[in-house]
Computed example of a mutant assay.
Amino acid sequence: MDLIVEQAEVWAATIEDKPGGLAGVLTVLHQAGADLQSVISRRDPEELGKAVVFVTPLQSDREIAAAAQVGFNVTQTLRSVRLIGPNHPGIVAELTQKLAEAGINLRGFSASVIGPQSIAYVAVDSLQDAKKTAAVLEQV
């Protein structure tokens, strides 16, 4: 399969769980020039009134400085591998089966399809797991 496999640095922030909470931080990143490829946000189940947002990538010093101003930090406990390639029925089952066979425990997995292309993010717990994940998926 023709997959582009690369590690992706993930940034996370706690935001207010209210209308405009997410828009506020994303606007700051946009104004700093960020061209985000992935945004995932959800309520924090442990802290009422709070939500968490994960973004990738942040690349320039200007983007990183803006992100820090609104509470983003690069995650140290979550590592991610990005996959970009052609879509076909069963691709997610195939990829996750290969990871299971390699003994890789997934912290999270998200995937989307746009036309003939698919993109997925595999979240794991350590840099070592991210390297192993990338190695397994490069063989698919």
Results as ranks from 00 to 15, higher is better:
Glu46Thr: 05
Val28Pro: 00
Gly33Pro: 07
Asp17Met: 09
Ser60Pro: 05
Arg43Leu: 15
Gln59Tyr: 11
Arg62His: 02
Arg42Lys: 14
Ser38Met: 15
Val52Ile: 15
Glu63Asn: 07
Ala67Cys: 07
Arg42Gln: 14
Glu16Trp: 11
Phe72Trp: 00
Val70Gly: 02
Ser41Asn: 06
Lys18Gly: 10
Leu22Ala: 01
Gln69Glu: 15
Val25Ser: 04
Pro45Glu: 08
Glu63His: 09
Leu58Met: 01
Asn73Ala: 13
Gly24Leu: 12
Val28His: 10
Pro57Cys: 08
Gln7Lys: 14
Ala65Glu: 13
Ala65Ile: 04
Leu36Ser: 07
His30Thr: 11
Arg62Lys: 11
Leu36Pro: 09
Ile64Cys: 03
Val28Ser: 02
Pro45Arg: 13
Leu29Ile: 04
Gly20Pro: 06
Lys50Phe: 03
Ile40His: 14
Lys50Ile: 06
Ser41Phe: 14
Leu48Ile: 09
Val25His: 00
Gly49Glu: 08
Leu22Ile: 07
Gly71Pro: 00
Ala65His: 14
Ala23Arg: 14
Ala66Cys: 05
Leu58Pro: 06
Lys18Gln: 15
Ala32Leu: 12
Glu16Cys: 13
Asp35Ile: 06
Leu58Trp: 02
Leu58Val: 00
Ala8Pro: 12
Glu46Gln: 07
His30Ser: 08
Ile15Gln: 00
Gly20Ala: 07
